[in-house]
Amino acid sequence: MAWFKREIKGIITTTQEKKETPDGIWNKCPECKKPLHYSEQVENQYVCHYCGYHLRIGSKEYFSILFDNNEYTELFTDLVSGDPLHFEDTRKYTDRLKETQTKTGLKDAIRAGHGKIDGLDIVIACMDFNFIGGSMGSVVGEKIARSIDHSIKNKIPFLMISKSGGARMMEAAFSLMQMAKTSAKLALLSQAKVPYISLLTDPTTGGVTASYAMLGDINIAEPGALIGFAGPRVIKETIKKDLPKGFQTAEFVQEHGFLDFIVDRREMKEKLASFIRMVMPAGDVKEEI
């Protein structure tokens, strides 16, 4: 019965010889659900070429997009989180840190680097959502503070790329202290007349939104980014009113005056360089000739 077996030569009769597609080569756009090849994502700076949806990316990808030739000096690489409260829920905080560090290859939810954008010196601190939801702990606050000090010392603009679920509960008050700490450092940056650019990406929420993410000399967001402080349910229960649709999107936030611009990721580098040249005094702009 040829119906149940293949007798023609050249036709693969088992699945063992089939080549499987490696993980990560293809994924689906969360918005339009169309398949995206990895090479297309990189070429289009991780923006869906069908619908323009901005895929979530981390510091590695942002650095490759923004720094000239992906060349930069990473700053403060020795900082790692401690466990000041000896926090333990279903497992120890220290165990979760080690597991996440191994899985992501990161030491914490932020990386900082000094390099050039279109020939202009800049310090960039970028959060990584894959590291415990991009939560703001002591290391995040300390790296931001040291990055600001580096910008002040060298008179270099500072760019903060926020992507976070908020404060890290495992560090409790130590985490919340970073809101005041980073805000105070940004005040010193302002006094030194060094530009601070805040870029809010999807998602930017909680204590991060309530502190350094909204304190930029210019606040920029990517299209469609979720931006807010508390979740919709908590807000509704607090104000006892129905909330407008899409009230935590970048577009809604800009419409109500909390953002200056929404910039497509593919145009971000050009826009940042243009802004730096506009606001930095001519003698202070450090630029390659």
Results as ranks from 00 to 15, higher is better:
residue 24 G to C: 07
residue 44 N to H: 10
residue 134 G to W: 04
residue 26 W to Y: 11
residue 80 V to R: 09
residue 185 K to L: 06
residue 155 K to M: 11
residue 145 A to F: 10
residue 253 V to Y: 00
residue 30 P to F: 00
residue 261 F to G: 11
residue 281 P to A: 10
residue 245 K to C: 08
residue 164 S to R: 08
residue 288 E to Q: 08
residue 199 L to W: 09
residue 138 S to Q: 15
residue 289 I to G: 14
residue 182 T to I: 04
residue 260 D to E: 07
residue 15 T to G: 10
residue 210 A to Y: 02
residue 63 F to G: 04
residue 101 Q to C: 08
residue 146 R to I: 06
residue 61 E to S: 02
residue 151 S to T: 13
residue 10 G to Y: 11
residue 198 S to Y: 04
residue 64 S to V: 03
residue 45 Q to A: 04
residue 108 D to C: 07
residue 241 K to L: 04
residue 36 L to N: 01
residue 46 Y to G: 01
residue 94 T to D: 14
residue 107 K to E: 06
residue 223 P to N: 09
residue 102 T to K: 13
residue 89 D to N: 15
residue 233 R to N: 05
residue 269 K to S: 03
residue 239 I to N: 00
residue 157 P to A: 04
residue 200 L to M: 15
residue 74 E to S: 08
residue 70 N to F: 05
residue 95 D to K: 13
residue 73 T to H: 13
residue 113 G to C: 02
residue 278 M to Y: 09
residue 29 C to Q: 02
residue 31 E to D: 11
residue 14 T to L: 09
residue 144 I to M: 08
residue 136 M to F: 05
residue 11 I to V: 14
residue 207 G to S: 09
residue 131 F to W: 11
residue 142 E to A: 14
residue 109 A to W: 06
residue 111 R to D: 04
residue 228 G to M: 01
residue 257 G to N: 13
residue 106 L to G: 07
residue 120 L to P: 04
residue 94 T to N: 11
residue 178 Q to C: 10
residue 79 L to M: 14
residue 206 G to E: 00
residue 247 F to R: 01
residue 219 N to G: 03
residue 240 K to R: 12
residue 70 N to H: 13
residue 24 G to M: 03
residue 258 F to Q: 02
residue 99 E to H: 08
residue 235 I to S: 00
residue 45 Q to N: 12
residue 253 V to P: 00
residue 210 A to N: 12
residue 150 H to T: 10
residue 144 I to D: 05
residue 31 E to L: 03
residue 175 S to D: 08
residue 225 A to G: 09
residue 193 K to H: 14
residue 289 I to P: 13
residue 182 T to W: 01
residue 175 S to H: 09
residue 47 V to L: 05
residue 203 P to D: 02
residue 113 G to I: 01
residue 77 T to P: 02
residue 156 I to Q: 06
residue 195 P to L: 14
residue 146 R to V: 06
residue 119 G to C: 05
residue 59 S to R: 02
residue 172 A to T: 10
residue 287 E to F: 05
residue 279 V to N: 07
residue 165 G to F: 10
residue 2 A to K: 06
residue 177 M to A: 15
residue 39 S to Y: 03
residue 21 T to F: 09
residue 87 F to G: 12
residue 211 S to E: 07
residue 59 S to N: 08
residue 79 L to R: 11
residue 112 A to W: 00
residue 240 K to V: 01
residue 262 I to L: 09
residue 169 M to H: 14
residue 159 L to A: 04
residue 252 F to G: 01
residue 175 S to C: 12
residue 94 T to Q: 10
residue 95 D to G: 09
residue 24 G to I: 08
residue 1 M to C: 13
residue 142 E to Q: 13
residue 49 H to F: 15
